[in-house]
Design a protein around this nucleic acid. Structure first.
Lengths: 124, 124, 124, 124
DNA sequence: GTGGTCTAGACCACG
DNA sequence: GTGGTCTAGACCACG
């Protein structure tokens, strides 16, 4: 598991886990039927309670990213052709919409926003 | 006051107020030394408790957007030349950074992100 | 809250709560925008931990039966015309399908199953 | 052995086996003194652990469906005249009772339930 | 007052 | 070993 958590972040731990794992499924780091590590082992590794890990797993299942076989473990769910791309597009757009709207409210032109995005992308 | 609140939004009421008012100051809808309506009248108008309005006002004062004159009311603060633009730029960039990072994690190229931003901007 | 729990039932407590509340929403005992009692008060009343109550509320929200306003409480969700009837029909059919299939496997004819259902209905 | 298992089902493996075998005994697919295949061969065939197969066999014996001859194997038990029919009726009714009760709670009339059952039976 | 998140345990069924 | 459910607390933000 490649997970980096922040205690100071306003984002709850379970959401940080959820976002990182769903992203790894969306970008192909994790593949169909891959077995996720057990919630208890992840909790041990991250030195947190099993609760936030379980919560993240639940949200992933709820979101259709994984499925659970009780007593066996959790596995990356099968996806229809293109479904992941659509989901990825929706998620990215949904996230982006609010920020662009906010920039518009602040009076930014499209060109200025694109410049800002470019600087963010290049890690400036 | 031009404020639109959502009960179902995950953003707390006081933050919704704060973000809309600070944006109105940043984009020039509200100007230096404009008098803000009283906390109670805003609460009445929005049909909410005075607590979130008070909290929003406090955050605005803390953020340097307004100042309070005891017994008189709250007013839009004076700003040094260019200060608002810097503040505006910082806020917008701060918001945007996370989303661009997330898109990168999902595997988007800069060109694809710019296209997404353009579509968001054009209200598509 | 009109809730009856069974400790001996194989059905987990949170599911018993979920099924009874969703049924009350489906059959009109609870109506749109009705405020549910707080999870803590229900837990106190039922003499159980808040965990199963919260879990039931989560599933109800997940199922579109209620919505949560943090700090305020949970409310029966709005439903489109006929939506509740469709949901009710789907749920009932889904439940019934397995049992009818099982009876078929046991060799029952439709007439025999109908007789059995009638006896069950009349509380025999 | 004519057994179809589902990993994603909420019904545990051992119960799926139990329900299918008991049904085959109740409906006459398996007859008195028929020899069941060995636990190990069934586990191999189904590509599962011997544990759930063993558990299913135990439950079948406990339910009076089979008997074990040490060193020889397991066999379908003898039944008194009509005993299987009674057992079959009890099982079917027991399963059906909960569903009919649930439908009543949802506000269905007997006529509506009978219609639903008919549609389920006809595989609609 | 309300939920939201989290800790640190427990016991259970299943395999 | 694996999840599933539950207890009995804690502290937090919001209103």
């Amino acid at each position: 598991m490649d997970l980096v958590l922040s205690n100071v972040s306003e984002t709850p731990i379970y959401l940080q886990i959820y976002e990182q794992l769903s992203a790894q499924i969306l970008n192909g780091t994790l593949n169909e039927d891959d077995c996720l590590p057990s919630i208890r082992s992840v909790a041990r590794e991250l030195r947190i309670s099993v609760i936030p890990v379980k919560r993240a797993w639940e949200e992933l299942e709820h979101g259709g990213y994984i499925y659970t076989v009780a007593g066996k473990g959790c596995f990356v769910a099968a996806h229809k052709i293109g479904e992941l791309d659509v989901k990825r597009g929706n998620l990215a757009t949904e996230h982006m919409k609010n920020e662009v709207d906010y920039c518009k409210t602040l009076g930014y032109t499209l060109a200025e926003i694109v410049e800002m995005v470019t600087e963010c992308y290049n890690g400036k």
